[in-house]
Design a protein around this nucleic acid. Structure first.
Lengths: 211, 211
DNA sequence: CTTTTTTGTGTACACTTGTTTGCCATCCTG
DNA sequence: CAGGATGGCAAACAAGTGTACACAAAAAAG
């Protein structure tokens, strides 16, 4: 009665995923969310959940997949906009921060998932990070910005870069997204971290390299 | 009736904290734990919980306090055992890993808390990390290992070091603690990260430093 | 020893949870 | 337009949840 299904296929599914992200954005941890809670937030009856997901872990896995798309979009934008090498890090970090602001809940979910409850989600996110790191390696090679580094050392450097940026998520989720000053502080600090790392990479084989 | 209280004061309190950590160690996320679940694991009646904690967040905060003690013990051991500078990083990382193995559940809790549900716990852990970073700064100054760095740059470097080590927790909780090979891989990789950072720090002001 | 404070227990209640089952509206395909 | 597949709804249930209350053993205080 009342009004029934006007929904086109897949709409409820998206509503459920979005509801989970919304709750995460409100400060809840994904691991503490329940099926009923999510369906309630989505404005849907509990049983509708099972039409799309087997359980909350399943929903989490599908969120990781979508997260992959978000990351890829970000990567594409970075590749287009960072052309000259001198402002590379500053601009990359700016793009990262901007995407985090735009998809805040997604990135909070990602930060949570790294030490989350579901082993599968954990591994999924780690896998995304590995992918990201390897793409970064390729780009730096292609731009001939790391010619003096071996493949292994370049990969090490990129891994550290990705970790550092990822860790800055825990800073970002600690401040209000509207607090421009704080966000900017995090931006310049992260940029400095990356500069420090690249100075290390530039002097790597010559200065150190134990054996 | 059966047998009643043979407990000396504060024992149940410890049992509850330990129970929470045990569950965390079993793969659960702290945010998803309930009062009843924790008391059940502790072998105590649910209402006993309220004799010691107001709610789960309160328990989390008190866990952060104990975590502080664990970290301080680790710091002390590092200060005693790392005497000559050349193996500084290798030994420090080894000590870190060893303490993580010894207090695994505590460190998993820490990794979870960084993006956890309770804002207070989050801030508590971040505060511990800041403290750790500043102590590291002091030590490096005292050992005269960073004479060419300004206070701000030294602080930046130490912060990055602490973050890198902290992030390696997410690697460690992903592998079995008995898998010596994998643990060793993480150890050498983390050590390389730190070496890379310190090479960067050593060449910092001379090589880079934008304006 | 007595009194008070602390700490653990048992029972109880109202509420939420995950999941099942049966029903119907809509969409897709032929 | 027929008919099956898809996706949403309502009602129901057992199990689990947080929390309150009153009572009792032990420890601390006098």
């Amino acid at each position: 009665m009342a009004e029934r299904k006007r929904r086109k296929p897949g709409e409820t599914r998206e509503k459920l995923m979005e509801a989970a992200l919304t709750l995460v954005g409100k400060g809840r941890h994904f691991a503490s969310l329940g099926i009923r809670e999510v369906t309630r937030q989505a404005g849907v009856v509990p049983t509708a959940f099972y039409r799309h997901f087997r359980n909350m872990d399943d929903l989490g896995l599908q969120l990781v997949d979508e997260l992959g798309l978000v990351l890829r979009r970000m990567m594409r934008e970075a590749r287009q906009n960072v052309l000259q090498a001198d402002k590379l890090m500053e601009e990359s970090v700016a793009i990262f921060i901007s995407h985090v602001q735009q998809n805040r809940n997604f990135f909070i979910f990602m930060a949570q998932g790294l030490a989350g409850e579901s082993r599968a989600v954990q591994e999924g996110i780690r896998s995304e990070l590995r992918f990201f790191s390897s793409e970064l390696s390729n780009d730096l090679r292609r731009l001939r910005l790391a010619d003096h580094l071996s493949d292994a050392d370049l990969e090490l450097t990129c891994d550290l870069v990705v970790r550092t940026v990822a860790f800055s998520l825990t800073d970002l989720i600690g401040v209000s997204p509207d607090d421009e000053y704080q966000v900017d502080q995090i931006k310049v600090r992260t940029t400095r971290f990356l500069q420090l790392i690249f100075v290390g990479a530039a002097n790597w084989r010559t200065a150190s390299r134990p054996e």
